[in-house]
Design a protein around this nucleic acid. Structure first.
Length: 288
DNA sequence: AAGAGGCCCTGATAGC
DNA sequence: TGCTATCAGGGCCTCT
């Protein structure tokens, strides 16, 4: 589910609601997430004061007063729910990616009490994970293998062009490769390539410097707009305050198989093709 | 070293 | 109140 824009929405929401508060308790109901949560995990978190909620790529990062960090990755199906305990019903006041305004009944694996709030981590597929880092060094170590975010000035045409030299994979594969650029997932990769007018199957060594400029530019455009629209809600997902994100209404190709290309004056059709076991959507005429 | 493919897991949906 | 197959937005690991 969550690519950079969706995680950014959660981050902004959490920042407003839990910054400055203290974790009073943590209850782990299921330790078997993507990586098993170690037994001594709770004692690292409890009684810590949250001074900031940050994000890198698709990772949520809670910074504590003692300069240690809690990192949460939502994987494919992770959602965060905030419940205000001072309200009688389990009303979700904030930060949910779930369609129902009520808390899901199943798969609430972690509960963190933060003053009068309860933060609940729900994740049916359990592809998400929690990590604790004692200091900056430990945290940064994790991110060494990640490429720049699309918004990073480093992610320019020269970086892209040089990176692609002597590479044989197709461009779609690289856009979702976090060591090349971090934060883009399967949905936005298709959308970005549509605006670039580049076929997802194009081998990157065949891309010109001007193609690379487009990739740099439209990656920013697509992600920025997705954040503005509150992220994308597909299937049963919604964003902060229980409202749906609306970027899915702006999809040009994603999940539009066999429909008409939306580019003005283009008479093409959107096709779906599996590239490395992941679905890709593209126009058969205006993308080359 | 780069690239292809398997796999972790549950739930929704389509087809029978 | 069927069953079975397929697919889903991520990313790590192994093998070649």
């Amino acid at each position: 589910m969550p690519e950079l824009p969706e995680v950014e929405i959660v981050k902004q929401s959490l920042n407003k609601s839990i910054t400055g508060k203290i974790i009073t308790n943590i209850l782990i109901k299921n330790r078997n997430l993507r990586f098993k949560i170690p037994r001594n995990f709770e004692k690292n978190i409890v009684k810590k004061k949250i001074i900031k909620v940050d994000r890198f790529s698709k990772h949520l990062i809670l910074k504590f007063e003692d300069k240690s960090y809690l990192m949460i990755h939502l994987g494919m199906s992770g959602t965060i729910h905030l419940i205000n305990k001072s309200i009688k019903k389990n009303t979700i006041t904030n930060t949910s990616f779930y369609h129902s305004p009520l808390l899901p009944k199943k798969h609430n694996h972690v509960e963190i009490k933060i003053d009068n709030l309860k933060l609940i981590y729900n994740d049916p597929r359990r592809f998400g994970y929690f990590s604790y880092f004692k200091n900056d060094e430990q945290l940064n170590n994790i991110f060494k293998k990640y490429g720049p975010e699309p918004f990073d000035p480093l992610f320019d045409k020269n970086y892209i062009f040089n990176y692609f030299k002597n590479k044989k994979k197709n461009i779609k594969n690289f856009l979702i490769d976090q060591s090349f650029v971090s934060g883009i997932g399967n949905i936005y990769a298709s959308e970005i390539l549509f605006l670039c007018k580049i076929l997802p199957s194009r081998e990157v060594s065949s891309l010109s410097i001007s193609d690379c400029q487009k990739i740099s530019h439209f990656s920013k455009v697509v992600l920025r707009k997705a954040i503005e629209k509150g992220g994308s809600s597909i299937r049963d997902f919604i964003n902060i305050s229980g409202d749906q994100g609306s970027f899915q209404k702006n999809f040009n190709v994603y999940q539009r198989e066999n429909k008409k290309c939306l580019k003005y004056s283009c008479r093409g059709t959107v096709l779906k093709k599996f590239i490395s076991n992941r679905s890709s959507f593209f126009c058969n005429l205006c993308q080359k």
